[in-house]
Structures are given as C-alpha cells and as structure tokens.
C-alpha cells in the first residue's frame, strides 16, 4: 500500500525473482541458438530469432498458467505467485519480439500493408483446419499486450475490479489461440513428434491442473455446515491461533475469522487489491495484513486504515460457550461490527 504510485514496488524477493527470470531467458536463448546452429548451420538469423523467442514465450506462458492452480494445490508454490505480474510482462515482450520479426519476415515484402497482409494473405476463414494461423497469433499477441499494458496497480484501481479481472481472464483465450497458432502454423512444417508431444503435454498438464484445483475448491464450497437458527457453526475458539484466522464458507463465499487481543472478528476472505486470501495472513499492528502484497484492513470494520480506501465485507459472530458461530449474511463492505470478546 502506498500514498503514490511507484514504477515497481521493489523488495528483495522481487529482485531475486526477476534475476532468476532474466537468467532463465538468457540461458534459454543461448541454448536454443547453439542447438539450432549445431543441427542446421544454414538457419538464418531471422528464422532463429522467430523460433527462439516464439518457443520461449510459449514455455513461459505454460509456466505462468501453472502457477495459479499449483498454489491452490500446494502452498509451497506461493513464492511463484507473488511476482507473476513480472513473469507475464516479460512473456509478452518475448512474444512481441517473435511477432514483430515474423511480421517483418513474412509480411513486409510486398506492396500490401503488413497488418492487412496478416489478415488477407490467407482468406480461408470458413475452414476450421485451414484457418489462417497468423491471425490467431496476432490476436493472441494483442490480448497479451492489453494484459501487460494494464498490469500496473493504477489500472487495478481505475478500471474497476470487474473490468480488470475480465480483461486478465482473457489470458485463457490467448492461450487457446496460441496453441492453435502452433498446431496450424509451425507444426504444418515441423512435424517432429517430439515437439508435438511437448506442446501437447504442456497443454494437458495445464488443463488437468486447473480442473483438479477447481474441483478441489468445489469440495471446500460444499463442505457440510451445521446450522442453528440461521447461524453457522465454525469451530471452537481454541482452534483459532492468536493473530491468525480460521476460514469458513458462507453462501459460497470464503470468510476469515480472526482472533486478536482477546476478541474475534470476521471479514470477507478476498483482498480488494489482487484477490489475495486474507485468511492466510495475520494481524500486524492491529490490522489484518494480506499475505500477498501487505494490504491492510481493520478487523472491526473491514476498512483499510486512512488514508487508504479499500473495504471488505464484515460478518456478525456469536460465541456459545467456546463455540464460534457466524451469521452467513454479509454486511456491506466497511460496515463496523463489534468484535465479540472471548
């Protein structure tokens, strides 16, 4: 959280993350060049650049798309999630190099505008299998550009959460377009079963991970809750650690119940910044602190401490003996609710 926007909120972990990414990119490109020139010395520099950056971008996109579901399946993958934004922007830059060089190599030699040439050199739009693959790649690149261009916190704050999220979920469409771009393009010529197998394996892993993680969450959503007069039983007080939370599900939404200073308060689990799980964070200086980027909320009213304006929904709690119950009806974001004393 800050009082102004920064280019990048650098910290030690981000610098390390970016250094590893940068080294990975350099090693990959050099390795690709060495293998290419060893196996086919006649390869032109333009072809090498197009293939090296294209394959690197696809590899990076696969890794990026695995991060989300992996963190849901095992928390040890969390460090990969914190700086996924940088990973995404770098991946777009690699894809952009591939795209620009491809456009120059294949579409700038005639007297037709290069962008027009991408869309009109093959007009077989009615065919499913003969669909112009260049168009698929171009559209995927546009989506990735939109995402990279709006990845800064300014856009999160000013595009509205719904719009920003919808835009960034377009990565799934971009991924589908990229896979088809490969199979209708490069594979028409490079029919090596190894390459086919690798991309197929990558796609299978990603789809399987997402579906597995998704249905794991369904189990949590559908967990049986014992109810009494409209109140849902959560746990006993001793089950909640000091300055930490116990998570439960109310009407499909995850709620975090925090224990702090001899009191209990309940807030919606999703951080307003980038959707981090507040319930996995802790109380620091009297504030619920999101484990992803440090955004804070006062437990008594779900509001960020002034001058910040983020708010999350709050919930009523009651204590019967040492049993904690929650009213599943959420209050509007930022509504004060008296914490219950233990």
């Amino acid at each position: 959280m800050g009082l102004d926007y920064q280019l990048v909120l650098w910290n030690k972990q981000k610098k390390r993350y970016d250094l590893v990414l940068f080294l990975f990119i350099v090693i990959y490109l050099l390795g690709f060049a060495v293998v290419t020139f060893t196996t086919n010395a006649n390869t032109s520099l333009e072809t090498l650049i197009i293939r090296a950056f294209g394959s690197l971008a696809i590899l990076m996109l696969h890794i990026i798309l695995m991060i989300g579901p992996l963190t849901r399946i095992d928390k040890r993958f969390m460090p990969l999630l914190y700086n996924r934004r940088h990973f995404g922007v770098l991946m777009f830059l690699m894809a952009a190099v591939h795209g620009v060089f491809s456009i120059i190599q294949f579409h700038t030699l005639g007297n037709v505008n290069p962008i027009v040439s991408i869309f009109t050199s093959n007009l077989d739009y009615n065919s499913l299998t003969n669909f112009p693959f260049q168009v698929l790649g171009f559209l995927a690149l546009i989506i990735l550009f939109l995402m990279a261009a709006t990845s800064h916190d300014f856009w999160l704050a000013n595009l509205s959460a719904k719009t920003w999220k919808a835009l960034h979920m377009a990565v799934y469409l971009a991924y589908t377009l990229v896979i088809l771009h490969i199979f209708l393009g490069a594979f028409q010529q490079e029919t090596s079963p190894l390459l086919l197998g690798l991309v197929g394996l990558g796609a299978t892993i990603i789809v399987a991970l997402h579906i597995f993680a998704g249905f794991k969450e369904v189990k949590v959503d559908q967990a049986k809750v014992s109810e009494e007069d409209g109140w849902h039983y959560v746990c006993s007080v001793e089950d909640i650690k000091e300055n930490r939370a116990k998570m439960t599900t109310c009407a499909g939404e995850r709620v975090a119940i925090f224990k702090y200073e001899g009191k209990l308060s309940a807030v919606h689990n999703v951080c307003r910044h980038q959707g981090g799980p507040l319930g996995e964070g802790k109380i620091v200086d009297g504030c619920i602190t999101c484990p992803w980027h440090g955004y804070q909320y006062l437990p008594g009213n779900g509001q960020s401490p002034p001058p910040f304006t983020e708010k999350v929904e709050t919930y009523n709690l009651k204590l019967v003996g040492n049993k904690v119950y929650i009213d599943p009806k959420a209050h509007a974001p930022g509504t004060p609710v008296d914490p219950i004393k233990i």
Partner: peptide, 30 residues
C-alpha cells in the same frame, strides 16, 4: 470470489474439451 471460481471452472472444462478436438483436427490435416 465464488462467481470467479465458477467462471474459471467453466472456462477450463470448455478448454479441456475443445482444445484437444481442434488440435486433433489440425494434426490430421498436417
């Protein structure tokens, strides 16, 4: 949030069905 989880599940089930279908068609055409 709950609605986003549902949307993600739907999208990935669709991709899981459509993508292999399209890829198999593309490979057959190679």
């Amino acid at each position: 949030i709950s609605s986003q989880r549902k949307r993600h599940r739907f999208i990935w089930v669709m991709i899981g069905v459509l993508l292999p279908l399209l890829v198999v068609l593309a490979v057959l055409r190679t």
